[in-house]
Measured scan of single mutants.
Amino acid sequence: DEVRLHVNGHTIEFRGIDEEIFKILEEAAKRGADEEELRRLAEKLLR
């Protein structure tokens, strides 16, 4: 299960996240989070 999030012209792939987590990451990206911040956030949410 892989999703792709487009951030500042880059595509970031995440594996094993559900739609709810994806929406949180998408919102963070809209607020200016970079790839590293998004990955840290995803790790926290998946715990």
Rank of each mutant, 00 (worst) to 15 (best):
D1H: 14
D1S: 13
D1Q: 14
D1V: 14
D1T: 12
E2N: 12
E2Y: 11
E2C: 14
E2K: 15
E2L: 15
E2M: 13
V3S: 08
V3M: 15
R4I: 15
R4Y: 14
R4N: 06
R4M: 08
L5V: 07
L5Y: 00
L5K: 01
L5E: 03
H6S: 12
H6M: 04
H6R: 09
H6V: 15
H6K: 12
H6D: 10
V7P: 03
V7I: 09
V7G: 02
N8E: 05
N8K: 04
N8D: 08
N8T: 02
N8F: 00
N8G: 07
G9A: 02
H10K: 15
H10V: 15
H10E: 12
H10D: 07
H10F: 03
H10A: 09
H10S: 10
T11K: 04
T11Q: 05
T11H: 10
T11A: 04
T11D: 15
T11M: 08
T11Y: 15
T11P: 03
T11W: 15
I12S: 01
I12W: 00
I12F: 00
E13N: 02
E13C: 07
E13M: 03
E13V: 12
E13S: 05
E13L: 04
E13F: 02
F14W: 01
F14I: 15
F14N: 07
F14V: 13
F14L: 13
F14K: 04
F14H: 04
F14T: 06
R15T: 15
R15Y: 15
R15P: 15
G16H: 06
G16T: 03
G16W: 03
G16A: 02
G16E: 11
G16D: 15
I17G: 04
I17P: 02
I17N: 03
D18M: 03
D18N: 12
D18E: 07
D18V: 05
D18H: 04
D18A: 05
D18W: 04
E19S: 08
E19W: 06
E19Q: 09
E19L: 07
E20I: 11
E20M: 08
E20S: 07
E20H: 12
E20W: 11
I21R: 05
I21T: 14
I21S: 14
I21E: 08
I21W: 05
F22N: 02
F22A: 08
K23H: 09
K23R: 13
K23A: 11
K23G: 09
K23T: 09
I24C: 06
I24W: 07
I24Y: 10
I24A: 11
L25T: 00
L25A: 00
L25C: 01
E26P: 00
E26H: 08
E27K: 10
E27R: 10
E27I: 12
E27L: 12
E27A: 09
E27M: 12
E27H: 11
A28V: 08
A28C: 05
A28M: 12
A28Y: 11
A29R: 02
A29L: 12
A29N: 05
A29Q: 05
A29H: 07
K30C: 09
K30R: 10
K30T: 11
K30V: 09
R31M: 12
R31K: 11
R31P: 01
G32S: 03
G32E: 01
G32N: 04
G32Q: 02
A33D: 06
A33G: 05
D34C: 06
D34N: 12
D34Y: 08
D34V: 09
D34K: 10
D34R: 07
D34S: 12
E35K: 03
E35C: 05
E35Q: 06
E35H: 06
E35I: 14
E35L: 11
E36R: 11
E36G: 13
E36D: 12
E37H: 14
E37K: 09
E37P: 01
E37D: 10
E37R: 07
E37T: 13
E37Y: 10
L38C: 03
L38E: 00
L38K: 00
L38F: 03
L38R: 00
L38G: 00
R39F: 09
R39H: 09
R39V: 10
R39L: 11
R39E: 03
R39I: 14
R39G: 04
R40D: 11
R40E: 13
R40G: 13
R40M: 10
R40V: 10
R40L: 12
L41C: 06
L41G: 00
L41V: 06
L41I: 11
L41K: 02
L41Y: 05
A42H: 07
A42I: 09
A42K: 01
A42E: 03
A42P: 00
A42V: 12
A42C: 12
E43N: 08
E43H: 06
E43G: 07
E43D: 12
E43C: 06
L45Y: 06
L45C: 14
L45N: 04
L45R: 03
L46R: 08
L46N: 07
L46Q: 14
L46G: 08
L46K: 13
R47I: 14
R47T: 14
R47K: 12
R47D: 14
